[in-house]
Design a protein around this nucleic acid. Structure first.
Lengths: 113, 113
DNA sequence: GGCAGTCATCGTAAAAATACGATATAGGCG
DNA sequence: CGCCTATATCGTATTTTTACGATGACTGCC
């Protein structure tokens, strides 16, 4: 399992545990920020899209959503700023993929409710 | 464990499974709405507070948060409209508690990511 | 170098969220 | 009944979000 990553941008698996607590004021703020990032149907769709094509896509996202390219780009930025996805420039296009570590963290925080 | 509910307002446990799918457009909108409701630190704090005092509280929430009473009431309304909590009028005060069914649903939807 | 394609950013308008004080409502108590 | 307490709602100001078109930056190709 020391092989290269399968795609240009998606990181290899990172199974290191997250030791941060799932409660307390910091966790509250963190959970609120992550939830806020997911709190729009278009962004949920983007996450699902990236999960389905386990590899990463780019402007195909724009084609899947009934939104202008600039709007989709803005939603991608929200998800990226929240740490939920990663975007890597791949030639003329940008390649997005999930950030599994943050997804796991989100599940842990929600699980703590 | 078939005893009466311990408090006036909190419903007894409801273990019926939720058969709705965790994917698809409806699930996307549902997840986005729930996440949006959680997407504010004050509301996360409220949920945690209600979870800790497994019974339900009322205006104590106002004392715990650095916000005006009307603002807290507004946050409670957001959570209630999302179905995450339940509020029941108990004499002169209102008694809030978690809605475990919706919390479970949220966990299922997040788990589907 | 010039051009076409892809994507991010800017500017902006409209809508929604957030917070507060003031006010209404409703219940319990003297 | 009149009053106090607890909570919801209203009105409002400020900020944030959402959406779009226009523009800019960068790449790859001719």
């Amino acid at each position: 399992m020391t092989a290269d990553p399968p795609a240009a941008c998606c990181p290899p698996a990172d199974d290191r545990p997250d030791l941060r607590p799932v409660e307390g004021e910091e966790a509250d703020v963190e959970l609120a920020a992550l939830a806020k990032a997911i709190g729009h149907p278009a962004r949920v769709q983007i996450l699902r899209l990236l999960a389905r094509r386990s590899a990463c896509v780019c402007g195909e996202i724009v084609e899947e959503l009934p939104l202008a390219q600039s709007t989709v780009s803005q939603h991608l930025k929200v998800l990226k700023d929240a740490g939920l996805i990663r975007g890597e420039i791949d030639g003329p296009r940008t390649c997005y993929c999930l950030e599994p570590r943050t997804i796991r963290r989100l599940k842990a925080l929600i699980g703590g409710l």
